[in-house]
Design a protein around this nucleic acid. Structure first.
Lengths: 251, 251
DNA sequence: AACACAATTTCATTATATGGAACTCTAATG
DNA sequence: CATTAGAGTTCCATATAATGAAATTGTGTT
Protein backbone atom coordinates (compact mmCIF):
# COMPACT_ATOMS: atom_id res chain seq x y z
CA UNK A 1 0.00 0.00 0.00
CA UNK A 2 1.79 3.16 1.09
CA UNK A 3 5.23 1.64 0.87
CA UNK A 4 4.10 -0.13 -2.27
CA UNK A 5 2.28 2.07 -4.72
CA UNK A 6 -0.48 0.75 -6.89
CA UNK A 7 0.91 -0.44 -10.22
CA UNK A 8 0.12 0.99 -13.65
CA UNK A 9 -1.97 -1.31 -15.74
CA UNK A 10 -4.22 -2.70 -13.03
CA UNK A 11 -6.86 -0.02 -12.89
CA UNK A 12 -9.80 -2.34 -13.32
CA UNK A 13 -8.56 -4.70 -10.64
CA UNK A 14 -7.98 -1.83 -8.23
CA UNK A 15 -11.42 -0.45 -8.92
CA UNK A 16 -12.97 -3.81 -8.12
CA UNK A 17 -11.08 -4.03 -4.85
CA UNK A 18 -12.06 -0.52 -3.88
CA UNK A 19 -15.67 -1.42 -4.52
CA UNK A 20 -15.29 -4.34 -2.14
CA UNK A 21 -13.90 -2.05 0.50
CA UNK A 22 -17.06 0.03 0.42
CA UNK A 23 -18.70 -2.91 2.16
CA UNK A 24 -16.26 -2.78 5.06
CA UNK A 25 -18.32 0.02 6.53
CA UNK A 26 -21.25 -0.56 8.84
CA UNK A 27 -23.82 -0.41 6.09
CA UNK A 28 -24.08 -3.99 5.02
CA UNK A 29 -26.16 -3.65 1.86
CA UNK A 30 -25.58 -1.19 -0.95
CA UNK A 31 -27.30 -0.56 -4.27
CA UNK A 32 -25.71 0.08 -7.63
CA UNK A 33 -26.52 3.78 -7.74
CA UNK A 34 -25.12 4.57 -4.30
CA UNK A 35 -22.05 2.42 -4.92
CA UNK A 36 -21.43 4.24 -8.19
CA UNK A 37 -21.63 7.60 -6.42
CA UNK A 38 -19.50 6.52 -3.45
CA UNK A 39 -16.85 5.10 -5.72
CA UNK A 40 -16.95 8.05 -8.12
CA UNK A 41 -17.27 5.61 -11.01
CA UNK A 42 -19.55 5.61 -14.02
CA UNK A 43 -22.64 3.53 -13.33
CA UNK A 44 -22.03 1.12 -16.20
CA UNK A 45 -18.48 0.48 -15.10
CA UNK A 46 -19.61 -0.01 -11.55
CA UNK A 47 -22.30 -2.40 -12.66
CA UNK A 48 -19.86 -4.48 -14.63
CA UNK A 49 -17.36 -4.71 -11.79
CA UNK A 50 -20.09 -5.63 -9.34
CA UNK A 51 -21.19 -8.38 -11.68
CA UNK A 52 -17.65 -9.68 -11.73
CA UNK A 53 -17.50 -9.68 -7.94
CA UNK A 54 -20.90 -11.33 -7.79
CA UNK A 55 -19.97 -14.04 -10.24
CA UNK A 56 -17.12 -15.05 -7.95
CA UNK A 57 -19.30 -14.91 -4.85
CA UNK A 58 -17.31 -12.12 -3.33
CA UNK A 59 -20.61 -10.25 -3.27
CA UNK A 60 -24.12 -11.60 -3.14
CA UNK A 61 -27.42 -9.92 -3.85
CA UNK A 62 -30.51 -9.54 -1.75
CA UNK A 63 -33.15 -10.89 -4.13
CA UNK A 64 -35.87 -8.73 -2.64
CA UNK A 65 -34.07 -5.45 -3.17
CA UNK A 66 -31.25 -6.23 -5.59
CA UNK A 67 -28.82 -4.72 -3.13
CA UNK A 68 -25.31 -6.11 -2.87
CA UNK A 69 -23.63 -7.37 0.26
CA UNK A 70 -20.44 -9.31 1.03
CA UNK A 71 -20.67 -12.92 -0.06
CA UNK A 72 -19.57 -16.36 1.00
CA UNK A 73 -16.22 -16.26 -0.78
CA UNK A 74 -15.41 -13.19 1.28
CA UNK A 75 -16.24 -15.13 4.41
CA UNK A 76 -14.08 -18.04 3.41
CA UNK A 77 -11.13 -15.83 2.58
CA UNK A 78 -11.61 -13.77 5.73
CA UNK A 79 -11.64 -16.83 7.94
CA UNK A 80 -8.56 -18.13 6.16
CA UNK A 81 -6.79 -14.80 6.64
CA UNK A 82 -7.58 -14.81 10.35
CA UNK A 83 -6.67 -18.42 10.99
CA UNK A 84 -3.46 -18.08 9.02
CA UNK A 85 -2.40 -15.05 11.01
CA UNK A 86 0.51 -16.18 13.11
CA UNK A 87 0.71 -13.01 15.12
CA UNK A 88 -2.79 -13.48 16.41
CA UNK A 89 -2.05 -17.00 17.57
CA UNK A 90 1.19 -16.03 19.27
CA UNK A 91 -0.26 -12.97 20.92
CA UNK A 92 -3.28 -14.55 22.57
CA UNK A 93 -1.59 -15.94 25.68
CA UNK A 94 0.22 -12.65 26.12
CA UNK A 95 -2.97 -10.68 25.82
CA UNK A 96 -4.53 -12.80 28.48
CA UNK A 97 -1.60 -12.29 30.82
CA UNK A 98 -1.63 -8.56 30.19
CA UNK A 99 -5.31 -8.33 31.03
CA UNK A 100 -4.76 -10.41 34.15
CA UNK A 101 -1.85 -8.37 35.42
CA UNK A 102 -3.27 -4.96 34.68
CA UNK A 103 -6.92 -5.54 35.27
CA UNK A 104 -7.61 -3.64 32.05
CA UNK A 105 -8.48 -4.58 28.48
CA UNK A 106 -5.71 -5.81 26.21
CA UNK A 107 -5.98 -5.73 22.40
CA UNK A 108 -4.02 -6.79 19.34
CA UNK A 109 -4.62 -4.64 16.29
CA UNK A 110 -3.48 -4.43 12.68
CA UNK A 111 -3.72 -1.55 10.22
CA UNK A 112 -6.24 -1.46 7.41
CA UNK A 113 -5.83 1.72 5.35
CA UNK A 114 -6.36 4.56 7.84
CA UNK A 115 -7.87 2.44 10.58
CA UNK A 116 -6.80 -0.15 13.13
CA UNK A 117 -8.67 -3.45 13.08
CA UNK A 118 -9.04 -5.18 16.44
CA UNK A 119 -7.85 -8.73 15.84
CA UNK A 120 -8.08 -9.96 19.39
CA UNK A 121 -9.17 -8.59 22.71
CA UNK A 122 -9.12 -9.85 26.28
CA UNK A 123 -10.93 -8.10 29.06
CA UNK A 124 -10.98 -8.88 32.73
CA UNK A 125 -14.74 -9.27 32.73
CA UNK A 126 -14.79 -12.31 30.49
CA UNK A 127 -11.86 -14.59 30.09
CA UNK A 128 -13.69 -16.87 27.78
CA UNK A 129 -13.26 -15.84 24.21
CA UNK A 130 -13.25 -12.93 21.83
CA UNK A 131 -15.24 -10.07 23.18
CA UNK A 132 -17.41 -7.52 21.49
CA UNK A 133 -14.84 -5.37 19.76
CA UNK A 134 -13.01 -7.95 17.71
CA UNK A 135 -13.46 -7.07 14.08
CA UNK A 136 -14.18 -3.41 14.73
CA UNK A 137 -12.05 -0.67 13.27
CA UNK A 138 -11.02 2.61 14.76
CA UNK A 139 -9.29 5.65 13.28
CA UNK A 140 -5.52 5.47 13.47
CA UNK A 141 -5.13 9.07 14.57
CA UNK A 142 -7.30 8.65 17.68
CA UNK A 143 -5.94 5.36 18.99
CA UNK A 144 -2.78 4.57 20.89
CA UNK A 145 -2.17 1.57 18.63
CA UNK A 146 -2.59 3.65 15.51
CA UNK A 147 -0.19 6.31 16.70
CA UNK A 148 2.37 3.71 17.74
CA UNK A 149 2.06 2.10 14.35
CA UNK A 150 2.62 5.20 12.24
CA UNK A 151 5.47 6.28 14.48
CA UNK A 152 7.39 3.15 13.62
CA UNK A 153 6.07 2.07 10.24
CA UNK A 154 7.89 3.23 7.13
CA UNK A 155 5.75 5.86 5.42
CA UNK A 156 3.09 5.23 8.09
CA UNK A 157 1.93 8.83 8.16
CA UNK A 158 0.89 8.50 4.54
CA UNK A 159 -2.07 6.42 5.67
CA UNK A 160 -3.69 9.62 6.89
CA UNK A 161 -5.43 12.46 5.13
CA UNK A 162 -4.66 16.02 6.12
CA UNK A 163 -8.09 16.38 7.75
CA UNK A 164 -8.45 14.13 10.75
CA UNK A 165 -11.95 13.46 11.98
CA UNK A 166 -12.79 14.74 15.43
CA UNK A 167 -14.38 12.09 17.62
CA UNK A 168 -14.26 14.07 20.85
CA UNK A 169 -13.19 17.57 21.84
CA UNK A 170 -9.76 16.09 22.56
CA UNK A 171 -9.17 14.33 19.27
CA UNK A 172 -6.13 15.54 17.38
CA UNK A 173 -7.48 16.92 14.13
CA UNK A 174 -4.36 18.44 12.60
CA UNK A 175 -1.84 16.25 10.90
CA UNK A 176 1.08 18.43 11.93
CA UNK A 177 0.06 18.18 15.58
CA UNK A 178 0.02 14.43 15.30
CA UNK A 179 3.34 14.38 13.51
CA UNK A 180 4.84 16.38 16.34
CA UNK A 181 4.03 13.55 18.70
CA UNK A 182 5.76 10.91 16.67
CA UNK A 183 9.35 11.55 17.68
CA UNK A 184 8.26 11.50 21.30
CA UNK A 185 6.50 8.18 20.74
CA UNK A 186 9.63 6.83 19.10
CA UNK A 187 11.78 7.92 21.99
CA UNK A 188 9.51 6.48 24.64
CA UNK A 189 8.60 3.41 22.65
CA UNK A 190 4.85 3.69 23.25
CA UNK A 191 1.93 5.92 22.34
CA UNK A 192 -1.10 7.13 24.24
CA UNK A 193 -4.66 8.20 23.62
CA UNK A 194 -6.50 10.16 26.29
CA UNK A 195 -10.17 10.95 25.69
CA UNK A 196 -9.38 11.22 22.00
CA UNK A 197 -11.32 8.23 20.74
CA UNK A 198 -14.07 8.48 23.32
CA UNK A 199 -14.58 10.67 26.35
CA UNK A 200 -13.44 8.83 29.46
CA UNK A 201 -11.45 6.27 27.52
CA UNK A 202 -7.66 6.05 27.42
CA UNK A 203 -5.06 3.65 26.16
CA UNK A 204 -1.40 2.88 25.71
CA UNK A 205 -0.10 1.21 22.58
CA UNK A 206 3.12 -0.23 21.21
CA UNK A 207 4.07 -1.39 17.75
CA UNK A 208 4.61 -5.09 17.14
CA UNK A 209 7.25 -6.27 14.72
CA UNK A 210 7.93 -9.33 12.62
CA UNK A 211 11.16 -11.24 12.40
CA UNK A 212 12.86 -8.77 10.09
CA UNK A 213 11.82 -5.74 12.05
CA UNK A 214 8.84 -4.94 9.86
CA UNK A 215 5.89 -3.39 11.68
CA UNK A 216 2.92 -5.77 11.70
CA UNK A 217 0.49 -4.22 14.11
CA UNK A 218 0.18 -3.00 17.67
CA UNK A 219 -0.76 -4.05 21.20
CA UNK A 220 -2.67 -1.93 23.63
CA UNK A 221 -3.90 -1.76 27.17
CA UNK A 222 -6.88 0.47 27.60
CA UNK A 223 -9.58 1.40 30.04
CA UNK A 224 -11.36 4.29 31.77
CA UNK A 225 -9.34 7.50 31.86
CA UNK A 226 -10.09 7.66 35.56
CA UNK A 227 -7.95 4.61 36.18
CA UNK A 228 -5.24 5.37 33.65
CA UNK A 229 -3.31 8.22 35.18
CA UNK A 230 -0.24 9.53 33.42
CA UNK A 231 2.05 7.67 35.81
CA UNK A 232 0.15 4.47 35.30
CA UNK A 233 0.20 4.90 31.56
CA UNK A 234 3.98 5.25 31.64
CA UNK A 235 4.22 2.07 33.62
CA UNK A 236 1.89 0.25 31.26
CA UNK A 237 3.91 1.54 28.33
CA UNK A 238 7.02 -0.08 29.73
CA UNK A 239 5.17 -3.33 30.31
CA UNK A 240 3.87 -3.31 26.76
CA UNK A 241 7.32 -2.68 25.31
CA UNK A 242 8.60 -5.77 27.09
CA UNK A 243 5.74 -7.88 25.85
CA UNK A 244 6.05 -6.60 22.29
CA UNK A 245 9.70 -7.47 22.15
CA UNK A 246 8.96 -10.94 23.46
CA UNK A 247 6.33 -11.30 20.77
CA UNK A 248 8.77 -10.57 17.98
CA UNK A 249 10.12 -13.71 16.38
CA UNK A 250 13.86 -14.18 16.25
CA UNK A 251 15.49 -15.45 13.09
CA UNK B 1 -21.65 -16.95 -10.13
CA UNK B 2 -23.27 -19.91 -11.91
CA UNK B 3 -26.60 -18.20 -12.22
CA UNK B 4 -24.76 -15.00 -13.00
CA UNK B 5 -22.02 -15.38 -15.52
CA UNK B 6 -18.89 -13.30 -15.39
CA UNK B 7 -19.30 -10.14 -17.45
CA UNK B 8 -17.35 -9.17 -20.53
CA UNK B 9 -14.99 -6.32 -19.91
CA UNK B 10 -13.85 -7.21 -16.43
CA UNK B 11 -11.10 -9.66 -17.18
CA UNK B 12 -8.47 -7.95 -15.08
CA UNK B 13 -10.75 -7.67 -12.08
CA UNK B 14 -11.71 -11.31 -12.37
CA UNK B 15 -8.10 -12.33 -12.63
CA UNK B 16 -7.25 -10.43 -9.48
CA UNK B 17 -10.10 -12.08 -7.61
CA UNK B 18 -9.08 -15.51 -8.80
CA UNK B 19 -5.57 -14.84 -7.56
CA UNK B 20 -7.02 -14.03 -4.16
CA UNK B 21 -8.90 -17.28 -4.14
CA UNK B 22 -5.66 -19.20 -4.50
CA UNK B 23 -4.99 -18.21 -0.91
CA UNK B 24 -8.19 -19.84 0.32
CA UNK B 25 -6.38 -23.16 0.25
CA UNK B 26 -4.43 -24.46 3.18
CA UNK B 27 -1.13 -23.19 1.94
CA UNK B 28 -0.94 -19.78 3.52
CA UNK B 29 2.05 -18.32 1.66
CA UNK B 30 2.65 -18.41 -2.07
CA UNK B 31 5.40 -17.03 -4.29
CA UNK B 32 5.03 -15.24 -7.59
CA UNK B 33 6.23 -18.12 -9.74
CA UNK B 34 3.90 -20.69 -8.21
CA UNK B 35 0.98 -18.30 -8.28
CA UNK B 36 1.62 -17.59 -11.94
CA UNK B 37 1.63 -21.30 -12.72
CA UNK B 38 -1.43 -22.08 -10.59
CA UNK B 39 -3.37 -19.24 -12.16
CA UNK B 40 -2.21 -20.02 -15.68
CA UNK B 41 -1.24 -16.38 -16.11
CA UNK B 42 1.85 -14.76 -17.54
CA UNK B 43 4.32 -13.94 -14.78
CA UNK B 44 4.36 -10.21 -15.53
CA UNK B 45 0.60 -10.00 -15.44
CA UNK B 46 0.51 -11.98 -12.24
CA UNK B 47 3.12 -9.75 -10.68
CA UNK B 48 1.18 -6.64 -11.57
CA UNK B 49 -2.09 -7.94 -10.17
CA UNK B 50 -0.38 -9.09 -6.99
CA UNK B 51 1.07 -5.62 -6.60
CA UNK B 52 -2.39 -4.17 -6.93
CA UNK B 53 -3.71 -6.53 -4.27
CA UNK B 54 -0.75 -5.73 -2.07
CA UNK B 55 -1.17 -1.99 -2.41
CA UNK B 56 -4.69 -2.33 -1.03
CA UNK B 57 -3.59 -4.63 1.79
CA UNK B 58 -5.61 -7.50 0.49
CA UNK B 59 -2.31 -9.36 0.40
CA UNK B 60 0.81 -8.81 2.43
CA UNK B 61 4.33 -10.06 1.89
CA UNK B 62 6.63 -12.04 4.12
CA UNK B 63 9.72 -9.79 4.09
CA UNK B 64 12.08 -12.70 4.63
CA UNK B 65 10.90 -14.71 1.64
CA UNK B 66 8.91 -12.27 -0.47
CA UNK B 67 6.00 -14.69 -0.41
CA UNK B 68 2.46 -13.37 -0.44
CA UNK B 69 -0.25 -14.15 2.08
CA UNK B 70 -3.71 -12.77 2.85
CA UNK B 71 -3.55 -9.33 4.39
CA UNK B 72 -5.31 -7.21 6.96
CA UNK B 73 -7.91 -5.78 4.59
CA UNK B 74 -8.97 -9.34 3.88
CA UNK B 75 -9.39 -9.91 7.58
CA UNK B 76 -11.44 -6.79 8.02
CA UNK B 77 -13.73 -7.63 5.12
CA UNK B 78 -14.02 -11.24 6.22
CA UNK B 79 -15.04 -10.27 9.72
CA UNK B 80 -17.53 -7.81 8.28
CA UNK B 81 -18.97 -10.47 5.98
CA UNK B 82 -19.38 -12.88 8.89
CA UNK B 83 -20.86 -10.39 11.31
CA UNK B 84 -23.22 -9.07 8.68
CA UNK B 85 -24.49 -12.52 7.87
CA UNK B 86 -28.01 -12.66 9.16
CA UNK B 87 -28.48 -16.33 8.53
CA UNK B 88 -25.63 -17.17 10.86
CA UNK B 89 -27.09 -15.09 13.65
CA UNK B 90 -30.55 -16.55 13.24
CA UNK B 91 -29.36 -20.11 12.95
CA UNK B 92 -27.20 -20.25 16.07
CA UNK B 93 -29.94 -20.95 18.64
CA UNK B 94 -31.39 -23.57 16.32
CA UNK B 95 -28.06 -25.25 15.87
CA UNK B 96 -27.67 -25.48 19.60
CA UNK B 97 -31.09 -27.02 20.02
CA UNK B 98 -30.43 -29.48 17.25
CA UNK B 99 -27.19 -30.59 18.85
CA UNK B 100 -28.92 -30.90 22.22
CA UNK B 101 -31.83 -32.94 20.91
CA UNK B 102 -29.86 -35.26 18.69
CA UNK B 103 -26.64 -35.61 20.63
CA UNK B 104 -24.78 -35.10 17.35
CA UNK B 105 -22.96 -32.24 15.66
CA UNK B 106 -25.02 -29.56 13.95
CA UNK B 107 -23.57 -27.27 11.27
CA UNK B 108 -24.58 -24.32 9.14
CA UNK B 109 -22.83 -24.13 5.80
CA UNK B 110 -22.75 -21.89 2.75
CA UNK B 111 -21.43 -22.60 -0.74
CA UNK B 112 -18.17 -21.18 -2.02
CA UNK B 113 -17.54 -22.30 -5.60
CA UNK B 114 -17.50 -26.10 -5.44
CA UNK B 115 -17.17 -26.37 -1.68
CA UNK B 116 -19.27 -25.84 1.42
CA UNK B 117 -17.88 -23.49 4.05
CA UNK B 118 -18.77 -24.28 7.63
CA UNK B 119 -20.12 -21.05 9.07
CA UNK B 120 -21.15 -22.35 12.43
CA UNK B 121 -21.00 -25.62 14.28
CA UNK B 122 -22.30 -26.89 17.61
CA UNK B 123 -21.25 -30.19 19.04
CA UNK B 124 -22.42 -31.90 22.18
CA UNK B 125 -18.91 -31.98 23.58
CA UNK B 126 -18.52 -28.25 23.92
CA UNK B 127 -21.46 -25.94 24.19
CA UNK B 128 -19.27 -22.92 24.54
CA UNK B 129 -18.45 -21.46 21.21
CA UNK B 130 -17.39 -22.18 17.70
CA UNK B 131 -15.60 -25.46 17.43
CA UNK B 132 -12.71 -26.58 15.34
CA UNK B 133 -14.35 -26.88 11.95
CA UNK B 134 -15.74 -23.39 11.51
CA UNK B 135 -14.08 -21.85 8.51
CA UNK B 136 -13.18 -25.15 6.92
CA UNK B 137 -14.43 -26.12 3.50
CA UNK B 138 -15.48 -29.47 2.15
CA UNK B 139 -16.30 -30.69 -1.34
CA UNK B 140 -19.95 -30.24 -2.27
CA UNK B 141 -20.24 -33.65 -3.85
CA UNK B 142 -19.20 -35.54 -0.72
CA UNK B 143 -21.26 -33.65 1.87
CA UNK B 144 -24.93 -33.88 2.72
CA UNK B 145 -25.15 -30.10 2.80
CA UNK B 146 -23.55 -29.79 -0.60
CA UNK B 147 -25.87 -32.30 -2.17
CA UNK B 148 -28.92 -30.67 -0.60
CA UNK B 149 -27.75 -27.33 -1.90
CA UNK B 150 -27.27 -28.32 -5.52
CA UNK B 151 -30.53 -30.24 -5.49
CA UNK B 152 -32.43 -27.07 -4.75
CA UNK B 153 -30.26 -24.27 -6.06
CA UNK B 154 -30.88 -23.02 -9.58
CA UNK B 155 -28.01 -24.22 -11.77
CA UNK B 156 -26.40 -25.70 -8.63
CA UNK B 157 -24.93 -28.64 -10.51
CA UNK B 158 -22.85 -26.24 -12.56
CA UNK B 159 -20.67 -25.69 -9.52
CA UNK B 160 -19.15 -29.10 -10.13
CA UNK B 161 -16.62 -30.38 -12.62
CA UNK B 162 -17.26 -33.64 -14.39
CA UNK B 163 -14.49 -35.33 -12.41
CA UNK B 164 -15.35 -35.53 -8.72
CA UNK B 165 -12.49 -36.19 -6.35
CA UNK B 166 -12.63 -39.44 -4.42
CA UNK B 167 -12.11 -38.95 -0.70
CA UNK B 168 -13.01 -42.48 0.31
CA UNK B 169 -13.94 -45.67 -1.49
CA UNK B 170 -17.56 -44.60 -1.13
CA UNK B 171 -17.29 -41.13 -2.57
CA UNK B 172 -19.44 -40.52 -5.61
CA UNK B 173 -16.98 -39.70 -8.38
CA UNK B 174 -19.27 -39.54 -11.40
CA UNK B 175 -21.38 -36.51 -12.03
CA UNK B 176 -24.19 -38.49 -13.58
CA UNK B 177 -24.40 -40.73 -10.50
CA UNK B 178 -24.69 -37.66 -8.33
CA UNK B 179 -27.29 -36.12 -10.63
CA UNK B 180 -29.35 -39.27 -10.32
CA UNK B 181 -29.65 -38.67 -6.60
CA UNK B 182 -30.96 -35.17 -6.94
CA UNK B 183 -34.58 -35.88 -7.74
CA UNK B 184 -34.69 -38.23 -4.78
CA UNK B 185 -33.24 -35.53 -2.56
CA UNK B 186 -35.84 -33.09 -3.85
CA UNK B 187 -38.64 -35.51 -3.17
CA UNK B 188 -37.48 -36.33 0.36
CA UNK B 189 -36.35 -32.83 1.15
CA UNK B 190 -32.98 -33.83 2.56
CA UNK B 191 -29.67 -35.32 1.43
CA UNK B 192 -27.25 -37.76 2.97
CA UNK B 193 -23.58 -38.61 2.99
CA UNK B 194 -22.47 -42.00 4.25
CA UNK B 195 -18.73 -42.66 4.47
CA UNK B 196 -18.30 -40.45 1.41
CA UNK B 197 -16.41 -37.59 2.99
CA UNK B 198 -14.60 -39.70 5.54
CA UNK B 199 -14.79 -43.33 6.49
CA UNK B 200 -17.05 -43.75 9.49
CA UNK B 201 -18.61 -40.33 9.10
CA UNK B 202 -22.19 -39.66 7.99
CA UNK B 203 -24.50 -36.74 7.77
CA UNK B 204 -27.91 -35.46 6.79
CA UNK B 205 -28.35 -32.06 5.20
CA UNK B 206 -31.15 -29.72 4.12
CA UNK B 207 -31.10 -26.55 2.08
CA UNK B 208 -31.84 -23.25 3.80
CA UNK B 209 -33.71 -20.54 1.97
CA UNK B 210 -34.07 -16.79 2.21
CA UNK B 211 -37.28 -14.83 2.22
CA UNK B 212 -37.86 -15.08 -1.49
CA UNK B 213 -37.13 -18.76 -1.68
CA UNK B 214 -33.56 -18.32 -2.81
CA UNK B 215 -31.16 -21.00 -1.57
CA UNK B 216 -28.64 -19.51 0.87
CA UNK B 217 -26.90 -22.51 2.39
CA UNK B 218 -27.58 -25.71 4.27
CA UNK B 219 -27.93 -27.22 7.72
CA UNK B 220 -26.62 -30.60 8.73
CA UNK B 221 -26.55 -33.07 11.54
CA UNK B 222 -23.62 -35.40 11.37
CA UNK B 223 -21.72 -37.97 13.39
CA UNK B 224 -20.25 -41.46 13.35
CA UNK B 225 -21.82 -43.77 10.76
CA UNK B 226 -22.25 -46.30 13.55
CA UNK B 227 -24.81 -44.09 15.23
CA UNK B 228 -26.51 -42.77 12.09
CA UNK B 229 -28.46 -45.74 10.80
CA UNK B 230 -30.67 -45.29 7.77
CA UNK B 231 -33.77 -45.11 9.92
CA UNK B 232 -32.19 -42.53 12.16
CA UNK B 233 -31.02 -40.50 9.20
CA UNK B 234 -34.56 -40.40 7.86
CA UNK B 235 -35.80 -39.17 11.18
CA UNK B 236 -33.06 -36.55 11.36
CA UNK B 237 -33.92 -35.49 7.84
CA UNK B 238 -37.47 -34.75 8.88
CA UNK B 239 -36.28 -32.82 11.91
CA UNK B 240 -33.94 -30.75 9.77
CA UNK B 241 -36.67 -29.94 7.26
CA UNK B 242 -38.79 -28.54 10.07
CA UNK B 243 -35.95 -26.45 11.41
CA UNK B 244 -34.99 -25.17 7.97
CA UNK B 245 -38.49 -24.01 7.27
CA UNK B 246 -38.60 -22.24 10.62
CA UNK B 247 -35.34 -20.57 9.75
CA UNK B 248 -36.70 -19.10 6.53
CA UNK B 249 -37.81 -15.50 6.94
CA UNK B 250 -41.36 -14.63 5.96
CA UNK B 251 -42.05 -11.47 4.04
C1' DA C 1 -51.51 5.70 -17.98
C1' DA C 2 -47.57 8.57 -16.80
C1' DC C 3 -43.60 9.27 -14.28
C1' DA C 4 -39.38 8.45 -11.68
C1' DC C 5 -35.71 5.90 -10.82
C1' DA C 6 -33.43 1.54 -10.56
C1' DA C 7 -30.97 -1.86 -13.19
C1' DT C 8 -29.25 -3.68 -17.56
C1' DT C 9 -27.63 -3.74 -22.33
C1' DT C 10 -25.37 -1.96 -26.60
C1' DC C 11 -21.43 -0.56 -29.11
C1' DA C 12 -17.70 2.65 -30.97
C1' DT C 13 -13.56 4.43 -29.31
C1' DT C 14 -9.27 4.40 -27.10
C1' DA C 15 -7.06 3.79 -22.84
C1' DT C 16 -5.42 0.38 -20.41
C1' DA C 17 -3.88 -4.39 -19.95
C1' DT C 18 -1.01 -7.66 -21.79
C1' DG C 19 3.05 -10.37 -22.27
C1' DG C 20 7.71 -10.93 -24.48
C1' DA C 21 12.10 -9.60 -23.44
C1' DA C 22 15.49 -7.65 -20.79
C1' DC C 23 17.24 -6.59 -16.44
C1' DT C 24 18.26 -7.01 -11.40
C1' DC C 25 18.79 -9.61 -7.30
C1' DT C 26 19.99 -13.56 -4.46
C1' DA C 27 21.53 -17.97 -3.29
C1' DA C 28 23.99 -22.06 -4.39
C1' DT C 29 27.70 -24.45 -6.59
C1' DG C 30 32.15 -25.46 -8.67
C1' DC D 1 35.84 -15.74 -7.38
C1' DA D 2 32.88 -16.80 -11.46
C1' DT D 3 28.95 -19.03 -13.10
C1' DT D 4 24.37 -20.66 -13.01
C1' DA D 5 19.62 -20.95 -11.79
C1' DG D 6 15.68 -19.09 -10.52
C1' DA D 7 13.22 -15.49 -8.09
C1' DG D 8 11.44 -10.94 -8.67
C1' DT D 9 11.03 -6.48 -11.29
C1' DT D 10 10.93 -3.21 -15.16
C1' DC D 11 10.24 -1.65 -19.95
C1' DC D 12 7.45 -0.85 -23.90
C1' DA D 13 4.81 -1.74 -28.38
C1' DT D 14 0.54 -3.55 -29.59
C1' DA D 15 -4.11 -4.88 -29.61
C1' DT D 16 -7.35 -6.35 -26.60
C1' DA D 17 -10.29 -5.35 -23.22
C1' DA D 18 -12.28 -1.51 -20.54
C1' DT D 19 -14.83 2.48 -20.72
C1' DG D 20 -18.88 5.29 -20.61
C1' DA D 21 -22.67 7.71 -23.29
C1' DA D 22 -26.96 6.51 -24.68
C1' DA D 23 -30.71 3.54 -25.12
C1' DT D 24 -33.60 0.04 -23.25
C1' DT D 25 -35.95 -2.64 -19.80
C1' DG D 26 -37.90 -3.31 -15.28
C1' DT D 27 -40.34 -1.90 -11.08
C1' DG D 28 -42.91 0.81 -8.01
C1' DT D 29 -45.78 4.86 -7.12
C1' DT D 30 -49.23 8.19 -8.08
Amino acid sequence: MRDHAAPQGAQAALRAIRLLKLFAAETSELQLAEISVSAGLNKTTTHRLLQALHSEEMLERNPATGAYRLGSAMMALGVQALSGNELRLRARPMLRRLADETGETATLEVPVDDTMLILDEVTTKHFVGASGNVGTRWPIHATSTGKALIAFEQCGVQRLNSDLTALTAHTITRLDTLENQLSDIRRRGFAETVDELEDGFSGVGVAVRGGMGEVLGALSICGPTQRLSEARRTQLGATLCTVASRLQPRY
